[in-house]
Design a protein around this nucleic acid. Structure first.
Lengths: 220, 220
DNA sequence: CTATTTGAACTGACTGGTCAGTTTAGTTAG
DNA sequence: CTAACTAAACTGACCAGTCAGTTCAAATAG
């Protein structure tokens, strides 16, 4: 593990406040996030060099190591950055308790929009998420938990308003929907660009509709 | 007995056809497949060296290049090898037309078993499948098509026997189920080993149950 | 039955190149 | 004035692919 060399290095591990940072640093970090998300999404974390990232961001290699301690750190922060964006979108769905199924549908729609807008992040996620001894194992576990919690509470909303199939565990359903969002989003980008957002949402929503049991609307 | 190993001759790039199957070579290839599936699944195609693969297979590096022309070739053949196994399992499900939904369920169960038995293949697949300019782009497109066709025909079976939601396109549903199998299978391995096979199958089957419209069972 | 030959399968040291990370001395911008 | 950044050289490790040489089982010859 290499440590920051000259005194007062701004890239400390204990980062809590981004707002106190000078504007220049934030702009640089932003450019580095964008460039590395693109490159790493295309060729994988191991397939991209720090020099390439620096060049693509219009920045020198030293700047990468000044802002992030290492390539590994850069990627860990990149993962958090992307999840922050996705979480914000998911949480933007008003938990309009009038119809939990509609809320769920809008959330899936938000996820599809995110996948369309940041396909490289989605690729990065699926590429590295399930590697067993990975440098980002803990980061993934935490971020995955945060995302699943949001989906889980939306499922709970549905389960509270409709009679649902008890044979389907909430956890497995969370995972299936979460995974389907990534895969359907990526497949649309890579293999089926003609597929509409609505078709994709409808396919994923099928699992929610199958979750609520087929009865005339009855109270739980 | 695999039939279609296109260009699988263990000699020069400008190879002449060689029907002869030396037992030694096949055993070596098998060992190389097993070793590379494991290593590449764990650390990614770019993260594994040919030396490591050779060592893990108990073979020298030269042997890898003798049997496969390049690292890239090895991986391409590895992908075909894995898909052959998965396809065989999916096709082993008797198209017992008595209940297409039950056939579908068994197919998903077979897929879950495959993911549990070859998690490294599943990781390799999701890691490399959606990379945009990839050496294995064509290989993936072909193999993906073959797998989706099998799932698609199972969906057709259901659609022929039950009234289904016309808002859900077959293609999107194929993708969602296919993707969910990989993701749920991998998640079970990595994050939720306590989840049972049945729970996982039930979660994925929810999308099929949501696909058939909620009416009293109508005959085809 | 033994000796020799053949060649496919295999070996592993070696090459030429790449890359993460470091260092330093100087420049820019807030 | 100083934090942020640049540019370029450097290091130590690592790696894909190569190739001259070795092994050995089967074919052939004596």
């Amino acid at each position: 593990m290499t440590t920051s060399q000259s005194g007062g290095s701004p890239a400390e591990p204990g980062d809590a406040e981004k707002k106190l940072r000078p504007a220049r640093t934030n702009a640089t970090k932003q450019k580095l996030f964008e460039a590395s998300m693109e490159l790493i999404g295309e060729r994988g974390a191991a397939g991209v060099t720090v020099d390439e990232i620096a060049t693509a961001a219009g920045v020198s290699k030293g700047t990468v190591y000044y802002n992030f301690g290492s390539k590994s750190d850069l990627i860990a922060q990149l993962l958090r950055h992307g999840v922050d964006i996705l979480m914000a979108r998911l949480l933007s769905v008003r938990d309009d308790s009038a119809d939990p199924l509609a809320a769920m549908e809008e959330m899936i729609g938000q996820a599809m929009d995110f996948m369309a807008e940041y396909p490289s992040f989605a690729r990065l996620w699926v590429s590295e998420n399930w590697r067993t001894p990975s440098e980002w194992q803990d980061t993934f576990a935490e971020l995955r938990g945060r995302l699943l919690a949001v989906i889980g509470s939306a499922i709970d909303g549905v389960a509270a308003a409709y009679p649902v199939d008890p044979a389907v565990s909430r956890g497995s359903l969370e995972t299936a929907i979460f995974g389907a969002c990534f895969v359907v989003g990526l497949d649309r980008q890579t293999y089926n660009p003609e597929r509409t957002r609505e078709q994709s949402v409808a396919a994923i929503m099928a699992s929610m509709r199958g979750y609520v049991v087929k009865q005339p609307p009855a109270q739980a």
